[in-house]
Design a protein around this nucleic acid. Structure first.
Lengths: 167, 167
DNA sequence: CCCTTGACTGTTACTGTATAACATAATTTA
DNA sequence: TAAATTATGTTATACAGTAACAGTCAAGGG
């Protein structure tokens, strides 16, 4: 599974950008992607995706849930978890294991197993191109005869902005 | 993808071996390592490490806690979490984010950020050599100007034995 | 048009994971 | 030995996730 040259939006989370644009754009693409797969982007699901898109950081299910409740949706955990599970299945969002939290996918539609870069200072999360990393995991695993099905790649550290801000 | 002979201890978790030997040995090494770092391997901490070493799989904090209680130690969550946090800080154990669980380090004393191979069938967890993987993560991160401090690398799949057992 | 079907949402109730805060005990240092 | 530090025990609570069931809504078949 090789990854072509990274598209220009890879550093999105770590750069200034027209955020309202990137949100609206991704919602529209999500609508299309879901339609193609015969899945329905219902109001709750759409709202959850919007909530995730309002940030470039991972949100806990209960953070999402609180906003859902404010918007008149159900405010019990399964409401949030079901919508989040749907978005993850459709590749529209990802789960960040380290944070027990969820984040909108910044380039949906492509089949990808992402590598996350998590800033410990500002909590921003970016998706890095993961091709080379996955190849390295495959190599290491095959030495032990292990058959990889899925990988979790998460790096903790400092984003460009916070490297200057923090000592 | 060929499978050359792996180094002897890397596949430990996936092979038959003298388990009582590997436990006693690692406890002794832990004692030394802690001493060198000015840290105290107290009875609770030592017992927690023993509990982890009795398995080659990750144990939840509450599994550890239950055994601690049976041995006359405190049976409230902080007792287990504090001991586990200590072991992780000293490099004597690792946290497996995917499983919200902990596992004894199979080669402590070396400064290493491990890559875990998690069998979804038998729950065994092995540490894979992570050098190449970390290099790949560094490369990907540096393209975005991100400074990596720690990495979480976990692969889910089937260990050699379970590839035969499971269809 | 109504009815059935299946998918989605809402709710209750619960299990599991983790930490804050404070009291007590043991160990080290002065 | 006293003071300071470090570790342990305990209570209480916050955060994460799921099972089970009831109600609702949209789409297709008679």
């Amino acid at each position: 599974m090789t990854t072509p040259a990274p598209p220009p939006d890879q550093t999105l989370a770590f750069q200034a950008h027209d955020h309202s644009h990137c949100c609206g754009d991704l919602i529209a693409r999500a609508q299309v992607i879901a339609g193609e797969r015969g899945a329905r982007l219902t109001p709750v699901r759409r709202r959850v995706l919007e909530i995730l898109l309002e940030h470039h950081r991972a949100l806990g299910a209960y953070e999402v849930l609180e906003r859902l409740g404010q918007d008149g949706f159900g405010n019990q955990p399964p409401v949030a978890y079901r919508a989040l599970d749907f978005l993850v299945e459709q590749g529209l969002a990802h789960r960040v294991a380290r944070l027990n939290a969820f984040i909108a996918c910044t380039h949906p539609g492509q089949d990808h197993s992402p590598a996350f870069l998590i800033c410990r200072n500002c909590q921003a999360v970016a998706e890095a191109p993961g091709g080379g990393i996955h190849a390295a995991v495959e190599t290491a695993a095959s030495l032990l005869g292990f058959a990889v099905e899925r990988t979790i790649i998460e790096a903790l550290g400092l984003c460009p902005a916070c490297q200057e801000a923090v000592e």
